[in-house]
Nucleic acid binder design. Sequence first.
DNA 1: ACCTTATCTGCATGAATTGCTAATTAGCAA
DNA 2: TTGCTAATTAGCAATTCATGCAGATAAGGT
Lengths: 140, 140
Amino acid sequence: MRSPEELTVAFRSAGLKVTPQRQLLFRLLHDNSSHPTADSLHSAATSVMPGISLRTVYQTLTDLAEMGELQSIEVGSGSLRFDPNVSDHHHAVCDGCGDVHDVYVSKAPVLRGLDDFSVSDAHIVYRGHCGACSALVATK
Amino acid sequence: MRSPEELTVAFRSAGLKVTPQRQLLFRLLHDNSSHPTADSLHSAATSVMPGISLRTVYQTLTDLAEMGELQSIEVGSGSLRFDPNVSDHHHAVCDGCGDVHDVYVSKAPVLRGLDDFSVSDAHIVYRGHCGACSALVATK
DNA sequence: ACCTTATCTGCATGAATTGCTAATTAGCAA
DNA sequence: TTGCTAATTAGCAATTCATGCAGATAAGGT
Ligand SMILES: [Mn+2]
Ligand SMILES: [Mn+2]
Ligand SMILES: [Zn+2]
Ligand SMILES: [Zn+2]
């Protein structure tokens, strides 16, 4: 995702308006690698701008996704997660704390049983335990 | 997933009862490679046994999953899909018709950026178009 | 400053799943 | 067979996540 300043320009030239709510979300999302949900973003936004609506958060996330500035991912946590990192990568979900980590995969795997299907995209979700959670399990 | 007959024995020895509703679902799921949703199973079940409750379908699917007889997968279609094929495999989803196909992947990919994380499972969701849908697009 | 139009908020609605409970039934035992 | 008891069913309520809608508001070009 581009910087708040660049997004401001991009939104205006797309005929979209730049409101304080959107600017806040631009800042909250920029360089955010936590893969937040709409709800967690709303919480973070509320502490800075009380009264901001969850509906506005969804709206802005949708706009950003349509502009290709972020991607929404589904990792089985029940709700969508939003990722300003739109580079080609995958995700690892900790079954202990639920944190989502970025994974970069080199060398595409070899497929079998997939005749007559043209693949345009692949997303891998790894599950396991992060270092902290592995340590917790070990000491218990 | 095992055969309806084997499941009958397994359910009884687990202290679970074998009802007509469950037997029907055993049959509908056995050798079913369509990755059905709870709702589509309920529709199929209703045509044989009018009055069967969607709640019962969910209940039985949960029981089967807990016994390891099937897995539930999330491929981004909004609702869970259930898969009696519990062998190690992945899925390809057609963006045209929504059908879900099995994919077998040899040779695990090499991961980067995933330090200090122990992976216990991986699930790849491929997206694209199946043969039929590719043909449709070409002729249009 | 004005005017048009996009946006915001609050609430209603929708879709998928789970919780709850009275009535029913499976299946073991007498 | 008959009876007993715990598991199951059906129906409906509740929950969660996301989107639809509309009147009030405000962005931003003129
Ligand atoms: Mn990511
Ligand atoms: Mn499968
Ligand atoms: Zn963890
Ligand atoms: Zn297709």
